[in-house]
Amino acid sequence: MDDLEILKASIQQVLAQDCDARSLHRYVDEQGSDLAGNLRLQAGELGWLGIGPTDDAGGLGLGLPGAAMLARELGKRLAPGPFVPVLVCLQVIERFAPREISERLLGGLMSGERSAAIPASFDAGESGGLLLGDIEQGGSVVLLPGEKDLVLATARGAGEPVQQREAWDRTRALWDTPADPEVLCVLPDGAAHYIEMCASLLIAADTLGAMEGLFDLTVDFLKQREQFGRAIGSFQALKHRMADLAVQIELADCLLEQALEAAHTDNEGGLFWSGMCKAEVSDAAAFLAGECLQLHGAIGFTWEHNCHLYLKRIRLNQALVRSNDALRQAGFGALEAASSDGRSLMEIGQ
């Protein structure tokens, strides 16, 4: 087993214990649980949040593939909290921020003490300035659209508290843009593409995890629930739907692998493949979520069940970064440009 696999096994073990259905529902129902805060601190303590940054920065040096693995496991367990924004900010700060700023911010982000927020959408006019993540007065790192480029800022302590918008998905939070942020630096050219690429990749990974979590739940249910004197999983109409979903999950996994490899090797392909990956995976996931709810019958329609939590998480993911149509339009533009230059975006390295 390589490092990534060992770490994955331990993440799975911890989450199975600490992010079980009961804790999750207590959190979602706001019964005085701070599951999100606790998980974030624990993720910091166990070194998970430092999975991406290099040794020099105090991380594990597993880069985006590491961050994607973590996001996938968190999605599988519906872990609440600003994990994707924190992971994106870590990548971005390490790569683009001046040294004194990264020294100031990386430690707190990796330890789980600082939260983070990033634009919920990069589509012009679409986001209405909404941010995804957690904004705590004072310490949070926020990526904000500036005049031309993105800026890195922290939310200020004084003044009006930033407004949170309750989302259907209660495992993540959306926020208005802080009125009076402390701007730390303007990020250089090229950072915007990189941020979007990271966000697409990690949202796709979270979505794939959610697909797996919900699918496994549904397979178990189909084996247990009996009607007409037999397990409903023996009905062929349901088997075929499940087989198709299993195929979609494998396909999503391959597409994520493609996007991670492209992110690693080149810039143009990185943006193209991360965008296509987010679009295809989140649309497939939205379909899967509907299928799985239907196959549960009425129990899947209840608040107590996890089906709706998965469905809402997946639907929020589908809307994040950019609309899937915008991603495909941009994707086609890249294909057209490559084609007219006699290049291909479909090469696979050996």
């Binding site: 296509m276 295809e280 339009q329 994707g331 086609f332 696979i348």
Partner: peptide, 10 residues
Amino acid sequence: YAALVARLQA
């Protein structure tokens, strides 16, 4: 078309 490219690549 873009979606077909993504699917085939996977």
